[in-house]
């Protein structure tokens, strides 16, 4: 009897928490379909009385959101692909290849994890300027192309690769690169998928750096474009909600599809970190 009550209580709380958590997102979707001014009434409406696609059409036609979407997608995918490859190579080398100064080098990298990115931000901007990359997608990508955290995660995973497997291949005369390509990468696949998800989400959601680097609205990423839009259309609640939906949708989809490996990654980063 007591157990039944406890079960009811726990589930009530769980549902209540879920409602609180989802309300902002659900309201965002709902309001994005309301006609202009429809969300600004008292009491606030929960569902659109007369649903409309008008704001989405407006965003894609007049406000060039497709362009910003394309910019974001290009930057995010490029960063994800490059960073996974680059980090995988380095993570594997730290885990499995023997070379002098390996442990010292790794320790230096680990120590650098505590440095917040802001301390290098101003010089990085001037460097990006010097390279002529201000106001280009490449300038946005630069800080994300390699990540110490990514190298660390891949190294932790790669430690479990049995040395015998690699040595056997060496005895067969395979080159180190071939070993990496045909043996190591397939073994690393789960962690690479996880890291790709991490990288995708963080590159897509990144705000401060693109805000600094990009000045021309034709180059804006979605979050920067959205922050720009809210400066101009703050009174257009429904339009802003449609913009928010479009910004959040891709990461939500990626997360829902990849959630198992993503959550694994979060736990791995915490347990071994």
């Amino acid at each position: 009897m007591k157990k039944a009550w406890r079960s009811i209580l726990v589930h009530a709380l769980l549902l209540f928490g879920a409602a609180l958590t989802l309300t902002p997102l659900l309201w965002m979707v709902s309001a994005s379909f309301m006609p202009t001014g429809g969300a600004n009434t008292v009491p606030p409406p929960i569902l659109p009385m007369h649903p409309t696609f008008a704001h989405y059409i407006d965003l894609f036609t007049r406000l060039h959101l497709a362009r910003d979407f394309g910019n974001s997608l290009f930057i995010t995918v490029t960063v994800t692909v490059i960073s996974v490859v680059v980090n995988a190579m380095a993570g594997y080398a730290f885990a499995k290849l023997r070379f002098g100064a390996r442990d010292q080098l790794f320790r230096v990298l680990m120590a650098a994890l505590v440095i917040p990115s802001q301390v290098g931000m101003m010089p990085l901007f001037l460097m990006v300027k010097g390279l002529g990359l201000v106001n280009t997608p490449w300038g946005v990508m630069i800080p994300g192309l390699a990540s110490i955290f990514g190298i660390f995660m891949i190294r932790q995973f790669a430690l479990s690769i049995p040395d015998d497997l690699l040595d056997a291949a060496r005895i067969d005369g395979a080159s180190e690169f071939r070993i990496f390509w045909t043996i190591v990468l397939p073994v690393l696949k789960p962690i690479l998928v996880t890291m790709a998800t991490f990288s995708f989400l963080s590159a897509w959601n990144d705000f401060m750096w693109p805000l600094i680097v990009l000045s021309d609205d034709a180059k804006y990423t979605l979050p920067v474009a959205l922050a720009n839009l809210v400066g101009e259309h703050v009174q257009d609640t429904e339009l802003m909600m449609a913009g928010s939906v479009l910004t959040v949708l891709p990461v939500l989809i990626v997360f829902l599809v990849m959630q198992r490996s993503y959550i694994q990654g979060v736990l791995m980063g915490s347990v071994k970190g």
Binding site: G17, A18, T21, L22, P24, L25, W27, M28, A31, A39, L201, W204, N205, F207, L222, P223, V224, L226, A227, V230, V234, T237, M240, M241, G243, S244, V245, T247, V248, V251, L252, V254, F255, Q259, Y262, I263
Partner: peptide, 19 residues
């Protein structure tokens, strides 16, 4: 469900919260 807000874009949800 509880994890979902973590992956959302901060700029977008900050705008939602403004409203």
């Amino acid at each position: 469900v509880y994890f979902t807000p973590v992956v959302t874009t901060m700029v977008a949800v900050a705008i939602v919260w403004r409203y």
